[in-house]
């Protein structure tokens, strides 16, 4: 039981990332009809917003402290980050400590802007082109973004720690009356899950309960008619593209303490998120979220030792790396439309 619970929890954080990226992908596909192969790159750009925030906070003023000397007898150079100088010792240190959550504030405008430029500057010109061209151009864009990030931040993962208050683990088992240390779970992953739940609910609430969201949903159903009613649907769709980019970016920012960001993290997530979208059903937002969490949890179950031993008993290799793909194959063979796919989406 405790093992079971632990694996469910372990699956939640990956599942949250899958769900958030898949949500953005579905949103873009549903509104603009474009499959965005650069969406993983947007996730990665978000993660590097966190890295940049950390670097910005660590920009230091170098002063020479005459009272201290290093082992050669030279005056010691002391680095003081500007934030400490400006905001004082405690506030400055708190800012450096909280750089990842604060990076959300940087990521929102950056991602909205990136999304806006991408849609207006590039993708707009591809609505009338075949789907293959859209895939190819966004794929090329993904390579370009990835290489730019690689050129500016290097190829190695950059550690971006969570605020020190959230380092450590939460003893989940005690809450449910189990032995201490039976089910322990890092705080930050709980926060990541809560964060993604908030974002997902916010997106759904926005689409469901606001006039803007209603118009967007109407546009998703029948773009032409909404346009004929005198509503500038293109502008709203552009904003939705920006929002989808922001969702991916925020998911990336918050993911950095879990795995240190590197330049190819986006593509690794993108392929799996595509599988999530296919399993959930193209064009279905709840399907994308559901399949994201489901596959994340499934992946963590497949990496359990008990499961690995079971496969070893059958002389099979362990399948934790590929279980998502296997599920996708089974779903496609039995329900080609995906779990919650709508009829007529991408069926020609």
């Amino acid at each position: 039981m405790d093992q079971f619970l632990l694996q469910v929890l372990n699956g939640l954080d990956k599942g949250s990332a899958y769900a958030l990226i898949a949500l953005g992908l579905t949103l873009i596909f549903g509104t603009l009809g474009v499959v965005n192969f650069a969406h993983g790159a947007l996730f990665m750009v978000g993660a590097f917003c966190a890295v940049s925030m950390q670097k910005i906070f660590e920009i230091s003023k170098v002063t020479i402290d005459a009272t201290k000397t290093d082992f050669l007898g030279n005056p010691l150079k002391v680095k003081t980050p500007y934030v400490i100088e400006w905001f004082g010792e405690s506030a400055g240190n708190a800012m450096i400590n909280w750089s990842v959550p604060l990076a959300l504030l940087l990521a929102i405008p950056v991602m909205l802007l990136v999304g806006y430029i991408m849609e207006r500057g590039l993708i707009k010109h591809f609505y009338k082109r075949p789907h293959a061209d859209q895939i190819l151009v966004t794929f090329g864009l993904a390579i370009v973004i990835q290489e730019i990030v690689k050129a500016s931040y290097g190829a190695n993962p950059i550690p971006t720690p969570a605020p020190s208050q959230f380092v450590g683990s939460f003893d989940f088992g005690v809450l449910l009356g189990m032995d201490p240390n039976a089910v322990i779970y890092p705080y930050w992953r709980l926060i990541y899950f809560a964060f993604s739940a908030v974002i997902i609910s916010a997106v759904f609430a926005f689409l469901r309960f606001t006039t803007f969201g209603m118009v967007v949903r109407a546009g998703m159903a029948d773009r032409e008619t909404v346009g004929l009613l005198g509503i500038n649907i293109d502008r709203r769709f552009t904003l939705m593209f920006g929002a989808a980019a922001a969702v991916a970016g925020l998911a990336g920012v918050m993911y950095t303490p879990i795995n240190s960001p590197n330049y190819h993290m986006g593509m690794d997530f993108l392929v799996l998120s595509f599988v999530v979208v296919v399993v959930g059903g193209m064009g279905s937002l709840p399907g994308a979220v559901l399949a994201g969490f489901m596959l994340g949890i499934l992946e963590s179950f497949a990496s359990m030792n008990a499961v690995k031993d079971f496969f070893e008993m059958l002389y099979l290799p362990s399948i934790d790396q590929i279980v998502i793909y296997l599920v996708a194959i089974i779903v496609l063979l039995t329900r080609p439309r995906g779990l919650m796919g709508k009829a007529g989406v991408m069926e020609e």
Binding site: I135, F274, V275, V278, S318, Q321, Y325, A328, M346, E348
Partner: peptide, 25 residues
């Protein structure tokens, strides 16, 4: 079984699966 975008995504997923198969599994 699918065409268009679905087909591209599926082949990408299969290639990535083959990569994981070859790399570790």
């Amino acid at each position: 079984r699918r065409s268009g975008i679905y087909f591209s995504i599926l082949t990408l997923a299969f290639a990535q699966m083959s990569f994981s198969l070859a790399y570790s599994v």
